[in-house]
């Protein structure tokens, strides 16, 4: 579904991606792990076209992402941002129904609101939340609204950027379960970025570890613990000692 070949990206002198190769199969849940600043978020933004790679090729369903019609391309995606990225000036239901009320297949307001409330219910939020503003919600509720917005238009591919960052362990567990259920239920292809190993085990079919702008290791989640790669072992066990330099 998603093929990434030799992608490079630098910001000034900072070489973030140094030739990333990765394939994500249709309907697969790929989790990308790696330390802060290793280029995970930049990679997602390259796939979405938010950041243009300096070199390399990204194909989605066989199409080069730089040559497709932007609207049709983006209509296939849903994304849950790290901080939620909810629009402050809109109510919760307007956030969730944002895409539904715009573009060629736009729905009338009442119908869009109904769909939004249905999606809110799907992520465990009551209809009363629909008319609140994002600032009135807790961090966990904001993540759920972000998730409802990401799935509102039934996307084929969903990206999750640090879905459990800033949440307590119980809420993180709830979000992980929701993500897994929704991805399976929709048959969507999912790519998740996280540092949270509990999330990795809950969400992933496959795992890829990025280190210094390259994919260091990739494989099924079941094989992750047994891999002899010292970088992966240090990361998944959270050890200070090992080949990955840590600043103290």
């Amino acid at each position: 579904m998603i093929q990434i070949e030799g992608v490079h990206k630098a910001f000034g002198a900072n070489q973030v991606l140094r030739g990333v190769n990765l394939t994500v199969g249709r309907g697969e849940s790929m989790v990308i792990i790696g330390g802060s600043g290793t280029g995970k978020s930049v990679l997602l933004k390259c796939i979405l076209g938010l950041v243009r790679p300096d070199a390399g090729m990204i194909r989605v369903a066989g199409e080069d992402v730089t040559r497709v019609s932007r609207d049709a391309f983006l209509a296939r995606f849903g994304m849950l941002f790290q901080g939620g990225a909810l629009f402050d000036s809109m109510t919760v239901w307007q956030n969730v129904a944002f895409r539904l009320m715009r573009g060629k297949g736009r729905l009338p307001k009442d119908q869009a609101r109904e769909v939004a409330i249905e999606k809110l219910r799907r992520v465990g939020l009551k209809p009363e939340v629909a008319d609140l503003f994002p600032a009135e919600l807790s961090g966990g509720m904001q993540k759920r609204v972000g998730l409802a917005r990401a799935i509102a238009a039934q996307p084929e591919i969903i990206f999750f950027d640090e879905p459990t960052t800033g949440l307590d362990p119980i809420m993180a567990g709830v979000i992980n379960e929701l993500i897994r259920e929704i991805v399976v239920e929709m048959g969507a292809t999912a790519v998740t970025i996280t540092h949270d190993m509990t999330s990795v085990r809950a969400i992933a079919d496959h795992v890829a570890m990025i280190h210094r702008g390259k994919v260091r290791w990739t494989g099924p989640v079941a094989e992750m613990d047994a891999t002899p790669d010292p970088y992966v072992q240090q990361f998944i066990h959270g050890r200070a000692e090992g080949p990955i330099e840590s600043v103290r």
Binding site: L48, L74, F77, A85, F87, R99, R102
Partner: peptide, 16 residues
Amino acid sequence: TMKVTEQIDALVTLST
């Protein structure tokens, strides 16, 4: 503020 909280990126991903 919309830029630093990724709301602008969110607009793009919502085809806007």
